[in-house]
Design a protein around this nucleic acid. Sequence first.
DNA 1: GAGTGGATTTCGCAT
DNA 2: ATGCGAAGTCCACTC
Lengths: 253, 253
Amino acid sequence: MITVLEAPTREEAAEAVKSALSRRRILVMVGNCWVNYQGRARSILNPGERILIIKEDGSVLVHRPKGYEPVNWQPPGCIFHSGLEGDVLFIKAVRRKPREILQVFFDKIYFLAAMSLADKGEFSLHASEEEMQKAIMNQPSLIEDGLRIIAYEKKVEPGFVDVYGVDRDGRLVVIEIKRRTAGKEAVLQLSRYVDSLRGEHGREVRGILVAPKIARQAHKTLITLGLEFKRLDPKRCAEVLAKGRLGSLEEYY
Amino acid sequence: MITVLEAPTREEAAEAVKSALSRRRILVMVGNCWVNYQGRARSILNPGERILIIKEDGSVLVHRPKGYEPVNWQPPGCIFHSGLEGDVLFIKAVRRKPREILQVFFDKIYFLAAMSLADKGEFSLHASEEEMQKAIMNQPSLIEDGLRIIAYEKKVEPGFVDVYGVDRDGRLVVIEIKRRTAGKEAVLQLSRYVDSLRGEHGREVRGILVAPKIARQAHKTLITLGLEFKRLDPKRCAEVLAKGRLGSLEEYY
DNA sequence: GAGTGGATTTCGCAT
DNA sequence: ATGCGAAGTCCACTC
């Protein structure tokens, strides 16, 4: 299932690379290389020891010995060319739309592995903004008592409002949700929505920013603009959802 | 320099992992695993065959056979615990601030490599937004004839203006630069800057959005708000800079 | 340390 | 296909 070559010659490596790419196997390679990229931007990476990964879907990663992010990459869907050019093994990954070219050149290959991996395991992620929205729909009292939800993702002029409702006194309420510290941007976005709805309805509209935290300066702006902030943790929302019998937004209607 | 184990036993693998982590070597591992993450959010990844990479700086990547992005990860600076728990090899990566825990469990290890890589190669990236700004400073006629640049990144109320100048008729000009298709967000940002400066100076202010392209709806908003759009490619800017003798913004003043 | 904006962002969803 | 906003975004830089 896995073919491993330790310290292969360039010829052996070239052969293994060609074979792996044509059979759409995953390729992991370690060696001394340099990299050129040209597309939306351009970059040059001078020689050094790195890890190259090419996946079966045609995505490419070049990883340096440090850092979470690849130094160079190519998203899925690349077409590959490879071979020997003198003493150098080159791999060229071409992407259409946008047109981008990544070229990797190896002069030393310490190690090469080609493999097919079977991965059907489900992945589930919790505590996203969508989950916060669901929780509020499910239990509007998370924001305040007497709040009734009218719509979610309502279209208003500048874009979409996360949640839209009426408070106990019959005033319109616009809710903007952020799953982490809300900044200036979120405040201004909410402000736009509120302004737009005020113009549209001509009656009082409250804007509530819902987030686990708000930046100090953003809070000042918020107050100036006559908006409100309601603290709410994604974790708390996850708990509400876990206890509620309502699983999805779709079921709500 | 590289230690490779093909199809090691769990005991051998556990030993190699412990050794690699303690000696801060890079670890590349392929096998059947499942993953839990808990921190800013929570996630569960059910069993499947994946590639695990742990770098010398304590960053972690779990890659599925497809996709450019890791399914789970941990940024640099993690502290590790590993060992055998029954028939399972576990690796636990803990990050402080924010507190996050990633746990990977292997029941089959197909392959394991531990290594130290030397990488001093310089990385250079071209055609960023900053380069577009430089090009405009260098050659304001890229925007329009008669434009004089007064300042860049001038502080105005909502934030920073990219470039700030005076046109041939003496009107203030605010320029917002985007290196790719400008969206609604860029238009609104520019609008805020223009409004702010109008209030401050009380005289006519032009707002120009500079980008290779503008979204259709964003363009409508732009027109409504009385702003302007000027098409400009990052590539074109790169050419201008290549020909110009001006290397950096600092030299401009 | 918090706040702000960019990214070769990528990704997914809705138009 | 295009547009738009979220992301466990990460990262770098400023205040």
